[in-house]
Every structure is written in structure tokens, then in C-alpha cells.
Design a binder for these strands. Structure first.
Lengths: 198, 198
DNA sequence: GTCCCAAAACTGACTGGTCGGTATTGGAAT
DNA sequence: ATTCCAATACCGACCAGTCAGTTTTGGGAC
């Protein structure tokens, strides 16, 4: 549990991510994780409490870095809601392509109860809330219209997920970003009003 | 495997659906499935080849009935693309609410290979293709515009999934249907000009 | 209707392999 | 000499899958 070596921990996580992404939870052997990470099996238990803890740590870590990246990016450039939404979508898509493994793990099986799982759910919620705040901001500014922004906020990661899951093969990340952005912003934009403001 | 008692098979499937929906695959005990279904454990192996077969059969069965329902409905009332798309979305939402368990099983998600899994994926593809054909029809008719309809077709089940997953709680199915319909049709009905100006 | 019985369906205690988790070892590094 | 840890050995809980035995079914004979 005490973490002494960040690098080793990272190795374990990334090895685990690959395996969890390609096999179901119950098929992933901790001996394989250890081997792939270049550590002894026992060492896993220094860094993680048990198999489930390792699994959710993979998710939590990945998600945290995504959320952080988005936060940073939004902070450094203060823009209008439209630009912020675009940036965020682009970031999520980028993440999904970059960390394919991790992204695939997310579609595996988050069911059951544990503290670490809760922490993962919180992070997830954080992302949704971030998106929600952008949309709400846009509505207040009169740029967007949406009767249920909390639903729309949830849709956005779902769109990325769907595209990758359905694997319309070898799609270009940029094409996907643009399509999702167009899709979402069009839906959020009332035609008449917006044209007027432009 | 090939067995006569439809009712018993259905009992097993629905018991399994509940359990697979609430616990991870590896935590579901076949003895529990058997008990809940009111049959002996051995009987499971008369109706299904093994645990994995049972799992995917749950998915396949549910999905098949959804696809069939949509097919029927579209056949019986020939309408324009807009109406067809609306009907389809409404049907998917209805399904998701009605078979909550089954819908939750779908997020427990499959990795690995097996014949039954392939059959499930085919069904999934069938649904996507159905939606795709409606959109394509709409584009030809000049009602819709979409640079990548194959992406959009995949989004639609994803939207429903996101809404339920995110569980903006106790949302009314009708409200959700309407929101998704508005979201999608708005995105599909505005031409690309707008995006160009942004 | 009812007796008989063979085939089919069903049951659940049992088992054997698997793998999460722990303890031990031995060698490299300091 | 001591610390660290990969490698290895080991343990035992767990549970999918099996199968010998039991029950149900159905149809042929009377």
C-alpha cells in the first residue's frame, strides 16, 4: 500500500491496463500482470490491496488524468462556452485514442461495491459536471438552448464511447472530434437565434 | 441445449439477467442462478452450454426482441424518415426502461471470443444498420444532413445508454425520449453551413 | 382408463482444476 | 551485513462442470 516507487507503480498500472483491456476481469491472471510489469507477484500486493483494487486503480488513474487535463486546458484559456465545449470534446476524443487500452477497460465491468470504485464514480461525475457547467454557462449566455442540460452532459462521453465501440474502423480522431462537435453544437443551437447573434 | 420447455428456458434467462445485472460475471454463481430460476444446477447445462453461453444468451435474446420489435413497428406503418427515427428512438428507450436488468447486463460487457458472442455482435450491428438506413433515407430525401451517418447511427443507442447509466434519477421515459429525439433530429436537420461560420 | 416402461428431463452432491493471495528463497545492490 | 525484491513454491477457498441416481413424460398394449 505504501508507495515508494512511482515508476514501478506506473508500470504495474499500465501492464494491468493492457491485460484488463483485452480480457475479462476473471481471465486476467495476476501472475501475468506481474510478469508483464517486470515485478514479482508479491510486489503487486505492496502497491495494491487486491485484484479489484488494482482494477479500479487503473480506471481511477486514467480518468483522473483526463479530468485534470481538461481542467488545465480550460483554465489556461478563458473562452466562450462554444470554444470550451469544443476543446473538451477534442480532449476526450484525444484521450480515448491515446489511451485505447484504458478506454477499453472502462467498458469492462464496473459493478459491485468498494471504496475505490466509489472514488472512480466520483471522478466520472466530476467530468460530467464539468461538461454540464460549460453547457449551463452557454445557456445563460444565450448561445445554447437545452431543456435538460444534465442529460446532454452525460451524452458527450457516451458519443465518444459509441464511436470507438462500434469501431467504424480506423476512423481519424480529428474527423471524429469534428463530427461529434458538429453534432452536439448543432443540437444545442437554436437555429434562428444563433444566426441572429452571429 | 435444444430443449422443449420454453418457459423453463425463459425462467433461467430472466433469473440470470437479474444476477448478471447486479454482479460481475465472475461473482455470479450458477448455483444461485439455478436456485433463482427454480431448477437444478444441472438443468442449466441442458439449456446452455456453459456459463458464458448463458451470459451471451441473455444478451442475445433481449437484443433480438428489441430489434424485432423495431422491425415490426417500422413495417406496419410506412412513414417518412423523421417519423421512423422518432419511433425507433422511442422503442429503444422503452426497451431500456422495461428491461432494466437486461440493459444493465449490457454494460457488464464482453471481451473475448465465442460463437454466441459473435451472434450477439451481429444483432447489435443489425440494430445499427437499421438506424443507419433510416438516416440514409432521410439524407436522400433531403430531410437530413450528416457527413458521417454511420457514426450517428452508432450514437443513438449510446445516448440512451448514457442517460440510464448516468442515472439522472427517476427520469421519465417519455421525457428522455423527447430529449433524445430533439437532440438527434436537431443535429440532423441543420445543414453544415452553420458549422463553417463557427 | 390404467398399467407399464423406456426414454428424456432433471437434480444436487461431489470433484478437480484454477488462481488469489502469502510465505520463502536467493541473489543483486549498496 | 543488510535491504530489497524477483522468482518461486505453496496453500486452500472457490466454483464450473459432471454424472449417478431420481422423477416425469408419453405412448403402446390391454
Amino acid at each position: 500500500m505504501q508507495v515508494t516507487d512511482k515508476q514501478k507503480r506506473a508500470n504495474i498500472l499500465s501492464a494491468a491496463a493492457v491485460l484488463f483491456a483485452t480480457q475479462a476481469f476473471h481471465k486476467v491472471l495476476l501472475s501475468d500482470v506481474a510478469e508483464k510489469a517486470g515485478v514479482g507477484k508479491g510486489t503487486l500486493y505492496i502497491y495494491f490491496k487486491n485484484k479489484e483494487d488494482l482494477y479500479f486503480s487503473v480506471l481511477l488513474d486514467g480518468f483522473s488524468s483526463l479530468v485534470e487535463r481538461i481542467h488545465l486546458q480550460l483554465d489556461e484559456t478563458t473562452q466562450g462556452p462554444m470554444e470550451n465545449l469544443e476543446q473538451t470534446i477534442r480532449e476526450i476524443v484525444r484521450f480515448a485514442f491515446q489511451d485505447r487500452h484504458l478506454f477499453n477497460v472502462m467498458r469492462t465491468l464496473p459493478i459491485g461495491m468498494s471504496i475505490i470504485r466509489e472514488r472512480w464514480l466520483e471522478k466520472r461525475r466530476e467530468l460530467i459536471d464539468l461538461i454540464l457547467s460549460i453547457i449551463t454557462q452557454g445557456i445563460k449566455a444565450g448561445v445554447f438552448y437545452d431543456p435538460h442540460p444534465e442529460l446532454t452532459a452525460g451524452y458527450i462521453p457516451g458519443l465518444v464511447r459509441s464511436a470507438l465501440l462500434n469501431g467504424t474502423d480506423g476512423i481519424d480522431p480529428d474527423v471524429l472530434s469534428r463530427h461529434i462537435i458538429r453534432f452536439v453544437t448543432t443540437a444545442l443551437t437554436q437555429s434562428g437565434e444563433l444566426k441572429a447573434t452571429l
